[in-house]
Amino acid sequence: MVQKFKFCLWLVDLLTVKPLTLIDIQHKWVNSTLNDRQEELPERTFSRYRRDIESLLNVDIQCDKRNGNIYFIANKEELQSNRLLEWLRMCYRLTNLSKDIKKKTVVVLDPAPPAAEHLEPILDAIERHQSMQLVYKSHYKDPQDISFFPVFVRLCHQRWYVIGLQLETMKERVLAFERISSMNNGDPRPDLKQIALKRINPADYFIHNYGVLKEHKSEFIKIRVTWPQNAYIKDVPLHHSQRVIQETEDYSDFELFISPTFDFIQSLLTHRETLTVLSPQTFKEEMIDVLKNMLANYQ
């Protein structure tokens, strides 16, 4: 099972670069570092794994018989929005690199997200539609005993969060993993599943947010970024809604449809004097107030 899953990720990674014939794939697999025993890949096994890739990873690998029987990924555009698959592929690459001890010193990683040990029991509760009993410590309150129905988890800015309903109030909450001091899975609550999913849709719950804060309504925000920082923001957009609306040699104007939350303001400030908010006026004035308060701390 492990070998099959490794092959599936390996093949997706391989065909993402360019289409290949079965002979090419077989040759590369025999010489792959993942294939410890250098086992050959029979055509029947390849066909079975190809079907597994479609069912497990939702990757459609087809054969172009008119062009030399080359295999290619038919839904390549969809893969770009499949974040889970991208993470799996990245983990596969790191696992592959870690086998070569010489490469460990040239791959430098940021610290892993804290409290990742909570991930498995929370995902188990989501899968079984169970409530959870948590002790949650906020920075603003004393520790709380919470009855919680988890709906989905999110990894955001190197922190894990679980999103769901607090059963005492039936309100939506976003809880950071590292603030959970203890947890126990409770009884199955299938009655809450439909109630929760009507209010919390994982696919678009944060669609108009920068991170995990949901404080304000979304609005169109225009910013100006001077050269050369504008080139970096094009390469790594601040938000998926970002688009260029005007461009000169000296700057680029961008428009985003996003909620102007605290963490979004933090992100804008990281670009220092190269970024200016153009509109709306209310948000521009809020940024001016933030900058005035920051300046006052240095006077």
Rank of each mutant, 00 (worst) to 15 (best):
K76M: 13
I73T: 05
L123D: 05
V153Y: 00
Y161T: 07
A115S: 12
Q130T: 00
R66V: 02
S138E: 10
I163W: 07
S81R: 06
R66L: 14
D100E: 13
L88N: 06
K65Y: 10
D142Y: 06
W160P: 06
N75R: 08
V151K: 00
C156W: 04
Y49I: 05
S147K: 08
F149T: 00
S138I: 13
G164M: 12
C156K: 04
I70L: 06
L56W: 05
C63V: 09
S55H: 12
L94R: 06
S81M: 06
V106G: 02
T45A: 12
R89L: 15
L119R: 11
Y71Q: 02
C91H: 10
R66N: 15
K141V: 09
R159F: 08
S55W: 03
H157L: 12
D100Y: 07
A74D: 15
E54Y: 11
V151S: 02
A125C: 05
K65N: 04
I146F: 00
V153M: 04
Y92D: 13
R66Y: 06
L94D: 05
L34Y: 01
E39G: 08
L41V: 00
C63P: 00
I122S: 00
Y140N: 09
R128I: 02
R48Y: 13
H118T: 04
A115M: 09
S55I: 05
Q144L: 12
E77D: 14
F152T: 08
N58I: 08
R89V: 03
Q133L: 14
D64V: 02
E127Y: 11
E54H: 09
L84F: 09
C91P: 00
L134E: 14
R154N: 07
S138M: 05
E117A: 13
E78K: 11
E54T: 04
L94K: 04
I73K: 03
D60C: 08
L88I: 01
R48T: 14
R89A: 04
K104D: 11
Y140E: 12
Q62I: 05
E120K: 11
S147G: 09
F148D: 11
V151N: 01
D142V: 10
N58H: 11
W87T: 06
A112G: 04
Q133T: 07
S55K: 14
A112R: 09
F46Y: 15
K103W: 07
V107S: 07
P143G: 12
L84Y: 04
L134F: 06
E40Q: 11
P114I: 10
Q133M: 13
L109Q: 10
R93K: 13
K65E: 10
I163K: 08
F149W: 05
D145L: 15
Y92T: 07
Q166P: 01
K103F: 11
E117V: 08
C63D: 00
L34T: 01
R154P: 00
V108N: 10
R89T: 02
V59W: 02
E127C: 09
L155Q: 07
D145I: 15
D124E: 14
Y92A: 15
S47D: 15
